[in-house]
């Protein structure tokens, strides 16, 4: 079972706090998304392992863009 983390709003990825292969817990901060000049933490939706990171730091994303995949 894998979970995709989607961008909740358009913005810029300012920080990636995990690497592929990392174990994450639900509600653990995985990314920081800057939107409207405010840094917004993005939390993991479930427990699991980071399978893949689909964005780079500094990348502009639109809403619902897949940021990373957790399985």
């Amino acid at each position: 079972m894998s979970d995709e983390v989607l961008a909740p709003m358009p913005g810029k990825i300012t920080k990636i706090l995990v690497k592929p292969g990392d174990d994450v817990l639900e509600d653990e901060e995985v990314l920081v998304l800057e939107a409207m000049k405010m840094d917004n933490p993005i939390f993991a939706p479930s427990n699991g392992k980071v399978k893949e990171i689909r964005v780079k730091e500094g990348e502009e994303v639109d809403v619902d863009h897949v940021l990373l995949v957790i399985e």
């Binding site: 709003m9 509600d27 939107a35 405010m38 917004n40 939390f43 939706p45």
Partner: peptide, 11 residues
Amino acid sequence: IKYNKKSYLLM
């Protein structure tokens, strides 16, 4: 976000 970590009310 304090009450629900999946809640993004900003926009």
